[in-house]
Design a protein around this nucleic acid. Structure first.
Length: 675
DNA sequence: ATGAGCTAGCTTTTT
DNA sequence: GCTAGCTCAT
């Protein structure tokens, strides 16, 4: 065919090629772990552009993480090296919806500078509502309320459409909160993550003219990690593809590990019924792992009943057997693993290519302490995110409030930080006045001052910050957002507050703020910076240096390493008891998929292990090997029991360049020990 | 308006 | 065992 002279098609296998060339009509690509799905997606986009089937801005490509979106963009641009590729519609569900929603905000009674709030703000808002409505938060935990609201939103249910479960007598109470919550968000001119998608779908359904702008534009749609979409996201896709039906979804039912976030594997399994004439293409050749690793993962996942079924294979080498080790306790497990790295692996592999994947983040602690002790560099991926830190949220709250005065959540956060003698009573007073007169907190405080209802000492502080806010809004017209941040830090007294109390914690905070100022450089204006902050989590950095990687199996999805350690395979921890208690067989199968994700991250070596004893929640508990251990294929594994104690004669290494990025328990404890 | 003291909960957390 | 978050007292 004429396609044969297209260079970028040459290094694809036959199914990958089929997937790339099959441009028109609905297409479902079942892509096993390590089968080159990103390559297929990016090549496909490049092919569409090269063939002139659509312009770059007529292609929609949706992912779940910013990182994935960025990588796709980069890779497509690389293939199309000489062409100018804007690719404006490459992004996460949330960022693309935010973009659309800002254009048509008035259709759902928002204005286009709406704030995007995170989970912290959501919980705060719910707490406020409970307080105002005299609902005891001990009886219905705000977090529980939030999860119910999220669930409804994931299913596209606005409050009016929810039919409360009569048996669950809490539900009608929660629904009442949901109603107020949605109204409150409108008052604040704010959206939560769920709203970004739900509002957009509502706009599309109610305004066919708006929908057609987009459905006429998106000639081709591509979706990554399709197994993780929820009802409303799928609905959104469905509306948009209505005209051209050139929708190509890529996913792996065996890697669906986010059902607790509303992901519905149903979307994936029903795709061919939803779209007529769906082409299904399976990518089963694995380019990542050795045969032994692959066979181990395949055998394990075969115990799941609810799956599409596929057979991964590789033309690569057998490789070493998967090691399955039993240790006396969790501490021994950490010591032995670090010794394996130190003695057997360090010379052959870069530490960057070695990872320890755990079920729960607390498991990293034992390893951290060990690495700190022997002076081995490590990085934790995940944990407290940069933008979730208190000092960063404070800074952002100042900016949010300057940008949008209705942002009461931001107002609440910074009004008395640093201390301005605005105490609980004053804040309560302002809140009540604001509710009564249906105005935002800032206007309420102004009015209260006018009416001379504020105590003198408080009035001084309040006036000061109100005047500053006005001044800063003025500054924003003349200065860039970064300069503004510096002015705010200075004039608000925030920097001074941190500098006055000299301890390690505060020095760290100042460092983080510097980092924030640095990150602000990358954005043209305050608006785009705030959008980034709301929708991004980590500042992408620090792959420098040679460090071993620690993370949860969830966080490892999409990554690969030469060597992977999978410790803590014990009944109750993995599969996790809670998962099985709450969701029964479905929960167990999801845990098994998680195990599958974990094993398939490894390219060359894989070490699975479990301990017979573990200190957990204040007690020593005896552990049984995970049922997953019994599900591994005998011929691909090598089981060893290591039950004698290692002699642990390391001194604490004080020179280690420890990780500033994450304030983890192990690190905090080391700091305390050094002090 | 800050801190001591008590209690509850303790899985994962793409945005 | 640990910590976050709340209450109550100073």
């Amino acid at each position: 065919m004429e396609n044969s002279n297209l260079n970028y098609l040459k290094n694809l296998n036959s199914n990958q090629k089929k997937a790339v060339l099959n441009l028109d009509g609905p297409c479902l690509i079942v892509a096993g772990a390590g089968s080159g799905k990103t390559k297929v997606l990016t090549t496909k986009v490049a092919h569409i552009v090269k063939k002139g089937k659509a312009l770059p801005n007529q292609i929609l490509c949706v992912t779940f993480t910013n990182k994935a979106a960025k990588e796709m963009k980069d890779r497509v641009s690389k293939i199309l090296s000489n062409q100018d590729t804007g690719l404006p519609w490459f992004g996460t569900f949330h960022s693309i919806c935010a973009k659309i929603l800002r254009k048509h905000a008035s259709a759902v009674n928002l204005s286009s500078n709406f704030t995007i709030i995170d989970q912290d703000d959501q919980v705060k808002l719910i707490k406020n509502i409970c307080k105002a409505e005299n609902i005891d938060i001990k009886e219905v935990a705000p977090k529980y309320v939030l999860s119910a609201i999220d669930k409804w939103k994931n299913n596209g249910l606005i409050p009016a459409k929810v039919i409360p479960n009569k048996k669950n007598f809490n539900e009608s109470g929660i629904l009442k909160i949901y109603k107020i919550y949605q109204q409150k968000l409108l008052d604040l001119n704010a959206c939560d993550f769920g709203d970004l998608i739900m509002h957009t779908v509502i706009i599309f359904e109610k305004n066919k003219d708006i929908l057609s702008i987009y459905s006429n534009n998106f000639k081709y749609m591509l979706v990554d990690e399709y197994q993780d979409t929820n009802f409303i996201q799928n609905k959104w896709l469905n509306l948009l593809t209505h005209k051209f039906k050139n929708i190509c979804c890529v996913g792996d039912d065996d890697q669906s590990i986010y059902s607790w976030r509303g992901a519905e594997i149903k979307n994936f399994l029903n795709f061919k019924h939803e779209y007529k004439n769906t082409k299904i293409i399976k990518l089963e050749e694995n380019y990542r792992s050795t045969q032994n690793i692959l066979s181990t993962a395949s055998k394990l996942i075969s115990y799941n009943e609810d799956r599409l079924g596929k057979r991964l294979w590789t033309s690569g080498e057998e490789g070493e057997l998967v090691k399955v080790n039993c240790y006396k306790n969790a501490k021994e497990e950490a010591i032995n693993i670090s010794d394996i790295v130190e003695q057997k692996l360090k010379d052959k592999f870069s530490l960057n290519n070695i990872a320890i994947l755990v079920r729960a983040i607390f498991q990293t602690r034992e390893f951290e302490e060990r690495f700190l002790k022997i002076g081995m560099g490590y990085r934790i991926i995940g944990g407290i995110k940069f933008y979730e830190r208190a000092e960063i949220k404070d800074c952002v709250a100042y900016l949010r409030l300057i940008f949008q005065k209705k942002d009461d959540l931001a107002f609440d956060r910074i009004i008395n930080t640093p201390k301005r003698s605005i105490g609980d009573t004053a804040i309560k007073q302002i809140n009540e006045f604001s509710t009564k007169h249906k105005i935002c907190l800032e206007d309420a405080s102004k009015k209260l001052i006018e009416l001379n209802l504020i105590k003198p000492k408080t009035k001084i502080g309040l006036l000061k910050i109100l005047n500053l806010l006005t001044k800063w809004r003025n500054d924003l017209l003349k200065k860039d957002h970064r300069k503004l941040m510096q002015i705010v830090l200075d004039e608000s007294g925030y920097s001074a507050m941190l500098k006055n109390k000299k301890d390690l914690e505060n020095e760290n905070r100042l460092e983080n703020i510097k980092e924030l100022l640095n990150a602000m450089r990358e954005f043209d204006n305050l608006e785009s910076f705030l959008e980034h902050v709301a929708l991004a989590t980590a500042i992408d950095r620090d792959w420098e240096g040679k460090k071993i990687n620690l993370m949860t199996m969830h966080a490892s999805k999409g990554l690969e390493f030469d060597v992977v350690f999978l410790p803590g395979w014990e009944e109750g921890l993995f599969p996790h008891q809670k998962s099985m208690d709450e969701k029964g067989k479905a929960g167990l199968e999801e845990e098994r998929r998680l195990a599958y994700v974990g094993i398939t991250r490894a390219k060359k070596l894989s070490y699975i292990s479990f301990a017979m004893n573990r200190f957990y929640q204040g007690d020593w508990i005896d552990c049984l090997a995970s049922r997953f251990i019994n599900e591994l294929p005998d011929k691909n594994i090598e089981q060893v029991n290591i039950l004698e104690d290692k002699i642990d004669d390391f001194e604490f290494n004080q020179d280690i360049n420890f990780e500033k990025e994450v304030r983890s328990p192990g690190w905090m404890r080391l700091l305390k020990k050094l002090k």
